[in-house]
Computed example of a mutant assay.
Amino acid sequence: MGAPIYLALDFPDWNTTNQFLLKHNLTGIPVKVGMELFYREGPALIEKLKKNDHSIFLDLKLHDIPTTVKHAMRNLAQLEVDMVNVHALGGGEMVQAAKQGLMEGNVHHHTKLLAVTILTSMDQANMVQDLRLPGSLASNVIHLAKAAQQNGADGVVCSVYEANAVKDACGSSFLTVTPGIRLANAQGDDQKRIATPEYAKQHGSSVIVVGRTVTQAASPKEAYEQIKGEWKNGND
């Protein structure tokens, strides 16, 4: 895999997805598969993407009682994707069960377990009003990251703005996967804590996830290459 830039395949079905990837010469790039597409196509979709050399982040955000999550992860482990995730708000026992399920499901493949902290569609006001969590958004993200790490997670999904703090709290090898990445001239849409690829690289992101800034661009291939260039510039 080259640059750790995952394209969110936010399409309704496999045919639409495949046509987009082929038309814009994006076969083989890392991709994120979310609920909409996976629930429509199922595990067969993952096998099709793997045959086309795509690295895969399976973004299902499991959140249930520990036993259910463990059994679900045991099944998902057999798909041998790069990364899967759960909601950190499910608690340490649930994260631990998810890790155990992954290990039991496939002892030979090292799928990384991520824990979603606070969704990038939320800001401080939403977090206080809707979740009733005390303290700052950043402090809650760090707390959830540390708890997830202690229970076996390999990294977290967070916004760019907490990535450095998570690295400081959990170590440089702890993955920080950051959605909400936009080119400078793109709209933010429904995500509130957004940033450019260059900013993400400079502020602690291990992996970035891009979506509409590529899929809705006039030239998706050109937009993806621009993101790769900006990510590379983040080294400067």
Results as ranks from 00 to 15, higher is better:
A147Y: 03
R74S: 06
A148T: 02
L119V: 01
L131Y: 04
A77R: 11
A125C: 02
I118D: 01
K112W: 05
Q96W: 15
K112Y: 13
G101F: 11
A125Q: 13
G92W: 12
Q124R: 05
N75I: 13
V107Q: 11
A145Q: 02
T117G: 00
G155C: 06
A147I: 13
A125D: 07
H71I: 07
V141G: 00
A153D: 05
L76P: 12
D82A: 15
V86M: 05
N106W: 12
S139H: 14
Q150C: 10
M73G: 02
D130V: 10
Q150L: 08
Q100K: 15
V107H: 14
L119D: 00
V95N: 13
G155N: 04
E104R: 14
Q100F: 11
G92Y: 11
D130Y: 02
G105C: 06
E104V: 04
D154A: 00
E104N: 05
A98G: 08
G101H: 12
A147L: 14
D82R: 15
V116E: 00
S121M: 13
K99P: 12
T120C: 07
A98N: 10
T117W: 01
V95W: 03
G155K: 13
M94R: 06
D82L: 01
Q150S: 05
K146E: 14
G152R: 14
T111S: 04
V84G: 06
V81H: 06
V128D: 05
A145L: 09
Q78T: 10
K99D: 05
L102K: 15
N85Y: 10
L137T: 03
L76N: 04
Q100V: 09
Q149H: 15
D123L: 00
H71R: 14
M103D: 13
T117K: 01
I118L: 14
N140L: 10
T117C: 00
A138D: 11
L131K: 07
L133K: 00
